[in-house]
Design a protein around this nucleic acid. Structure first.
Lengths: 242, 242
DNA sequence: ATCGCACTCCCCATTTTCGGGGAGGTGCGT
DNA sequence: ACGCACCTCCCCGAAAATGGGGAGTGCGAT
């Protein structure tokens, strides 16, 4: 295993992260950090199921392509595990059972990924979700030492990468150009809680017709196809809390 | 202004945060940190629209009560501003216009809050959203110096407070009783993406009748009242990613 | 090898939602 | 004082979802 260099050497990269201007800059920083920390791979990427992709890192291009083509986003236990956690997670603590998952793992190994991993979930406004991951091949004990030693560094790195990414891709954030009105939010919230329109209208002490107007306008503002879609988008963007 | 102590002195509190066992512990840590950093106030609190409250800090009790009673949650520019940002924000950069907001500000001052503030937004799984705030009275230049010097400390503190809070309140992370089958998850995912039943069935290359069976069984497993509710629950539990 | 579970298909009638339209009142910021 | 966004109410027909029922295939586990 490479030498695990301490925080001080990461300061350069931290400083560079704050003034990143292009995705290529971000990419070169992941490579520099990978070398500084002496690990096999370091990756930052946005997690979107809708095909949009944003990320950088040192995974082989073949693996990135395959990952997307195969729809591994929906299989990868790292995604699922991090989605339900706040704190960074060691890959060993995830659930790797299941046929599809085992095949995924095998495929990952075949593409040169190490069996040790440590991933930091990051959440931004409007339901943004991203991951910052370090990947390596070494013994469990060595990995434990590494991850414990650099845990805080990695959290800060994840934070800085996300900050840089949000600066580079402002188009992802200001989707809420038309914010929902209080009544619209209330309406969607009740629907998300399982109320039907009659019940929701009753709960808000308004007519069902009025409720429909709210749902309709919320749907238009959210660019949603139907009520379920509107509720899903509102939840995804974090503008309603259930 | 008090002396702004550097990161090293915060290490004690960081260590204590990792082993916190009660809300009172968390409370005492905010007080210790306030004194260490030499600021007027330091606060961590959950932001829930549904009235549930979880938090700790050094704001006067009278202010906390008033804040809740008056529903300032929906007025406070700090909440709104942080909700739309990823990076910590200086209160001066927020939008303080509006009649209600000005009255809110006046009320805050009257309750002993300083005019300088720096707030760190934190997001967890299941749409959790929390804030970590430091508040003080000093000149703009002094505050600028302070916030720049301790920015990274405050981000890590926010992270650790949230981690501790999530450990203390596991009730916010519901467990998955009966796991959904792959097809059920696919079905719900497509619905969350705005597909209607015919489109979803087509996308999965199955009959609409079959799709209905999945939705039905998923609804039962999730204890949901209707399709929208089922999708909302699945998203809330993080078992589908949209 | 048997059991359970996931997967697939089909019927019925009833309830709910959708997608347009119009119309009047309030309160806030410029 | 004006506009603008919000809130509230109502009409219609067409489309979609719901809630039951039954019935056959395969796969993995006990």
């Amino acid at each position: 295993m490479g030498q695990f260099i301490r925080g001080a050497s990461a300061e350069n990269a931290l400083a560079r992260l704050e003034s990143v201007e292009t995705l290529a800059d971000l990419q070169s920083i992941t490579e520099a950090l990978r070398d500084q920390y002496g690990v096999d791979h370091m990756v930052y990427h946005w997690v979107n199921s809708d095909g949009e992709q944003f990320g950088c890192g040192t995974y082989p291009q073949a693996w990135v392509t395959r990952y997307l083509d195969q729809g591994y986003l929906r299989i990868d236990p790292v995604i699922k595990g991090c989605y339900q956690r706040f704190h960074p997670v060691d890959w060993k603590r995830l659930d790797w059972s299941g046929k599809a998952v085992r095949m995924f793992l095998q495929d990952a190994r075949a593409h040169g990924l190490g069996h040790q991993g440590y991933s930091v979930p990051i959440r931004g406004p409007n339901g943004q979700f991203a991951l910052f991951t370090v990947n390596h091949s070494c013994t469990d004990a060595e990995w434990e030492t590494f991850s414990q030693m650099h845990r805080r560094d990695l959290i800060m790195l994840a934070h800085d990468f996300n900050h840089a990414a949000l600066r580079l891709e402002p188009g992802r954030t200001p989707r809420e150009a038309t914010p929902l009105s209080p009544r619209e939010l209330e309406a969607l919230t009740l629907l998300a809680l399982g109320y039907n329109r009659a019940q929701a209208a009753n709960a808000l002490s308004i007519s069902e017709h009025t409720l429909r107007v709210y749902i309709e306008s919320a749907r238009h503002k959210l660019g949603a196809q139907n009520t379920t879609h509107a509720v899903a988008r509102a939840m995804q963007r974090g503008i309603i809390v259930v």
